[in-house]
Simulated assay, not measured.
Amino acid sequence: MVAVVELSEGPGTSAAYARAALGLLRRPGSALPDVELVHRGVRVSRDHLARYDRVCGMRLTDALPATYPHVLAFPLAMRLMSAAEFPLPMIGLVHVANRITLHRPIDASSRLDLSVRAVDLRSHARGRQFDMVATASVDGEEVWRGVSTYLRKESAASSPAASLPASSPASSAAGDSPAAGAVWRLPARVGTDYAAVSADRNPIHTSRLGAKLFGFPRQIAHGMWTKARCLAALEGRLPESYTVEVAFKQPILLPSTVRFTSSATGAGWTFAVHSKRPHLTGTVTG
């Protein structure tokens, strides 16, 4: 039976990072905690929403971007993953895939009930992975769901680059229209700017030294920033409700120049971000 833990206020992330560091000292476990964290009545800060939109290249509107509730739920996920009973150390987890379903448009004036739960701890060719399921509801109706897949590398041969699950979204499909593209020149501040609005202050995104400690030559872009930037490039061409699924491939080193490509399909869109190597592939389906 799932234990539901109600939080009267949103958890911060600073304490979670401290607990995460302590988590490196304990042995990995074998079972996810059967716990759901819930924070009800969350109000959106218009100022924060505007800053998020600007950082991700989105228009300023009253409708929440599909990726925005992920930012609201992220502190809950941090609290769950940094808890003493969580079986895998949070530091070192690799975000390999993310699927978001926007059931209907969400107005910024809505009061959101947020929940997170970790499910399906399973074997992977390079270690173990699990899904962090987050939801946002309005007046008892689920309006948004996000599923983030995290990998814990437990192979001695592993490298800093994330591997793709076998079911990762395809970068092209039969019958697609010709791919349209754009070149993005990404400054180093992409990491620190997104960290400021997302509360995801992992040093691999904000510090060259921090990135080097984890095997990267310099800091890397947040995967969820990249996903949000892709949706910004498709603004005005997305339905009111849809599912957007991405697989994170090779990290984007900052600063960097990458290319975004997209193709319309009968079901929606396929898109990708790449340079000399692929960084992200994704699909949008209505």
Rank of each mutant, 00 (worst) to 15 (best):
S177K: 10
S8C: 05
V119L: 12
K276T: 13
S198A: 02
T285S: 14
S110C: 15
W269E: 04
A267N: 14
M90R: 06
V35T: 05
A247G: 14
R43M: 11
I100T: 09
V38A: 02
A173E: 14
V284T: 04
S163K: 10
V258L: 08
A180R: 15
E240D: 14
S30E: 15
S198T: 04
R117W: 03
A16K: 00
S148M: 02
D131M: 06
H39P: 00
A97V: 01
P217E: 05
V147L: 09
S171C: 13
L72V: 01
A136L: 03
S115Q: 05
Y194V: 13
L102W: 01
V4W: 01
R51W: 04
F248V: 01
V143L: 02
A118K: 07
P33A: 05
R27T: 11
P87M: 12
E154M: 13
K276W: 12
T243S: 14
V35E: 07
A83L: 05
S171G: 15
P105D: 11
S168N: 10
A15G: 09
L102D: 02
A182W: 10
T270I: 07
A221Q: 01
R51L: 07
H279R: 09
R59Q: 15
L209G: 13
S159K: 12
S256V: 04
L186W: 07
G215W: 08
Q250S: 11
T206E: 03
T206V: 11
I100R: 06
D62K: 15
A188K: 15
W269T: 01
L164R: 09
S45Y: 05
A20N: 01
L253M: 14
A73F: 08
H103T: 13
L253H: 13
R99P: 05
H274G: 06
V96L: 12
R152W: 14
